[in-house]
Design a protein around this nucleic acid. Sequence first.
DNA 1: ATAATATCTGAAAACGTTATTAATATCGTT
DNA 2: AACGATATTAATAACGTTTTCAGATATTAT
Lengths: 337, 337
Amino acid sequence: MNKNITLKDVAREAGVSIPTVSRVLNDEKFVSELVREKVKEAAKKLNYHPEWSARSLRLRKTDIIGMIIPSVTDYFFSSIVLGVERYFRRKGKELILFNTSNDEVIEEKAIKLAISKRVEGIVLATICKNNKVIGSMIESFGTPFVLVDNKIEVEKVDFVLADDINGSYKLIRHLIEVHGNREIACISGPFDESSGFDKLYGYKKALVEDDIPVKEDYIKVAHWKKNEAYEATRELLSMKDRPEAIYCMNANMLIGCLRYLNDKEIKVPDDISIVTFDDYDFVSAMNPPITTLERIDLEMGEKAAELLLERINGDGGDYKEIRIGADLVIRKSCGCK
Amino acid sequence: MNKNITLKDVAREAGVSIPTVSRVLNDEKFVSELVREKVKEAAKKLNYHPEWSARSLRLRKTDIIGMIIPSVTDYFFSSIVLGVERYFRRKGKELILFNTSNDEVIEEKAIKLAISKRVEGIVLATICKNNKVIGSMIESFGTPFVLVDNKIEVEKVDFVLADDINGSYKLIRHLIEVHGNREIACISGPFDESSGFDKLYGYKKALVEDDIPVKEDYIKVAHWKKNEAYEATRELLSMKDRPEAIYCMNANMLIGCLRYLNDKEIKVPDDISIVTFDDYDFVSAMNPPITTLERIDLEMGEKAAELLLERINGDGGDYKEIRIGADLVIRKSCGCK
DNA sequence: ATAATATCTGAAAACGTTATTAATATCGTT
DNA sequence: AACGATATTAATAACGTTTTCAGATATTAT
């Protein structure tokens, strides 16, 4: 284990003072070519790496961004992480990842931890619902936040959200207009999360437009979970007025739904049509491929990162709420050829 | 933006000296109950958070781990990230994520960056092949490394790897012994990566055991990629001696393969059998569900984290190479009922 | 009562960097 | 040749913590 090389060592090697080395390495002006060369050479020779905690202590900036998500193995969130990471990598900032495992307590701790690590900003996909805790935490710190995916009641924060209402609306309208479906069920997220609420709103809006009654029995809340969606599908298919189509509001619930259909050898789209909100690689590899909406997760990640950086740099202006829309991706599971 | 509260502020508030506050907050001995209470109260009142760059500068430890992977959106890697994150979270360490996008140059930069950030250790899933650059970089730094997924020629490093040979072997033996298949093709990773090489080795070993000739035409290298696997599947199915079964060596290539089969409406397992190496959520939701091996990615992540921590703490002992094995998960795509 | 010991507290230094300020060298102009 | 302006360098302080180390106080033993 070789002892760390510091500016002091480089300075001695190059025969100059410490600040001069610092100036060279930070590409500042007011240093002669000769010295510049000497210093660079010495730094290279000694294999110098700056001590970043000293730097950030002095500069009062860490170049670190916090990213707090429920689950990195969720297709949706890992894509957002990619978008955020990619953006900040180009800007010379690092990403610290916090995986809350869908646990509100862990989420709270993660926020506190991130703050105490002096991250410059936080991208947060919260699972918090009506709970005011997170909101007041956010407001009590000076650190900028961008919230993705879910909207909660909190001031002075930017939002990057999916256009849940219109996405749902488009999917359901397709089933109605093109396939003449009227008996359309949905496997839903919880309504106390904005994404669940809005997706349901879009679903209802599409039905109401053709005076199709909204049957409460057709709305199954599966909390974005595979297992619950499996069960929900079972219930839907055992109804006497079995639906003609099922709309899954996320990829996990699609998986649960399809598992049930496979187990019972129920044919898609002959026996029942399926549509889902999120397009991931495997969605198009299904048999049949599933009709869905374009992917927006990467775009959401990049946009969130962009907003956060503006806010960090102090030129964010008014707080924004950005909705990212998506067009239909029509495949076969809805009955299209 | 409220100015940061420091030990100094807390000390003044509590009417004690700075070191005393430090001692209280770090739960050290030699401080009276009275003072302890006063300080804690003051810290809470002022909402004190330690300045972590100062702390790590003084303590010469950062509590930060670097995690370098090719792609966080890959099912395999995101699970490893989860395993690593979960382990280190419990140990009070943070995870900085580097996504190299399968680019060797970015990977090199990521390593250097991680080192200069003084991470205490690095979990690396390298895409490096015969290239000696990464190896010599690793050896030149004092920072502990654990390499996952891929093995390269490098000293003084721990490895956590899948038991690629036996996994492949089990899958192919199942096709041979249970289904009597002899014409078995594979869509493979590149052979200059250990995981590709070893998986191919297991595949051949299984064939040779029954004196089944290894046809080079049946081995298609698709570099773990969806698109290339799509093309490979096309080629395989247009051969005059079309195979009875295809073995996909990772989930991405499975997706590409299935996309082609769906496009051409080729039935699994009636027209062709399919097996794959990795089990992910969607693999069991396919129609039919795909026969595969148990998931080991989470275990790999946790194990890698464990080894790295031992190494950081200096009680790692001899360098290890750990192989994690997995049993078959038999579903319907191989022809089983 | 005194000495010895255990317990508590504060002053000062150090970690490695950058910013400020001051000092020196260089140059062109008169 | 002397002056001021400018370019280059060095000395020093500061960022917020923890770690000596020494001093102070309380406790116990003699």
